[in-house]
Design a protein around this nucleic acid. Structure first.
Lengths: 133, 133
DNA sequence: ACCTAAAGGATAATTTTTATCCTTTGTAAC
DNA sequence: GTTACAAAGGATAAAAATTATCCTTTAGGT
């Protein structure tokens, strides 16, 4: 149970109990979608409003406290902002895991093929995870 | 104005005027979201229903006639199914373009780092396109 | 030309997300 | 520790996005 008070404040977010709980849910799940997050939060705060979830997710996104990961053929999941990484998605159990990949080969390939100035790369690799094989 | 009758039938889709028009809109725009597609279609069929757009997009996706591309911080766009490729998204003009990239460096990196069996890769590179620089 | 399953249009219903409004609370200043 | 106030939470309405329903029309095989 990590205390995210300072981390929230560093992103200009007041450290409310709901936000601390959301932070911990994101941390322990790694990646979670809105519905599952709401379910989890209801266990801690039996009267938390779905609007609170949405308002916080949006504010946390704006302040770069969290990131959205768009999953092919599925709902978006959210994660605490970390160093740059890519994602592996298991199409069977739907788990999402982080993976650090070297983007240089791709970036240099784009440079030589086009005049595009890349500022961000989003890579999602789908397949079957170790446990599901 | 390409005739997509056969191509539709090859994907078990009846060649209706609406579907032929959607096919051409996808072809000429390259990538388009639901709203813009609906706008375009209204110009051809002044009484086309938005439900028709949704029903067709979903059926075309199921039959792999088209593909969805999830754009970071934006709405999904749709494209006619083509050979595998990645996407460049301009964060200024929002245009999406295809780019052929060699995924082998990434795939072999995943192989050596994990036991994940990759079946699909989705790569979206965001930045500023040639025209917007 | 005929038949029938499938598609289109209109619209209702659902689902998802955002806005509103009032009460409560985190936090900075004293 | 108290106070003050902007900001956050909860309840709920509203809006936006997507899907379902139902009846009419039509594509495409016979």
């Amino acid at each position: 149970m990590i205390n995210y008070t300072d981390e929230l404040r560093r992103h200009n977010l007041k450290a409310t109990p709901q936000r601390l709980a959301i932070s911990n849910a994101l941390h322990s799940s790694g990646h979670i979608n809105i519905d599952k997050l709401y379910e989890l939060m209801l266990k801690k705060f039996n009267s938390i409003s779905l609007a609170t979830i949405y308002k916080n997710i949006n504010l946390m996104l704006e302040n770069s406290y969290i990131q959205e990961v768009k999953i092919p053929q599925n709902k978006s999941v959210y994660e605490l902002t970390k160093n740059y990484h890519s994602h592996l998605v298991c199409t069977k159990c739907e788990e999402v895991e982080d993976i650090k990949l070297n983007m240089n080969p791709i970036l240099s390939e784009v440079n030589s093929n086009s005049n595009f100035e890349i500022s961000k790369t989003d890579v999602v690799l789908s397949g079957i995870c170790k446990d599901c094989q």
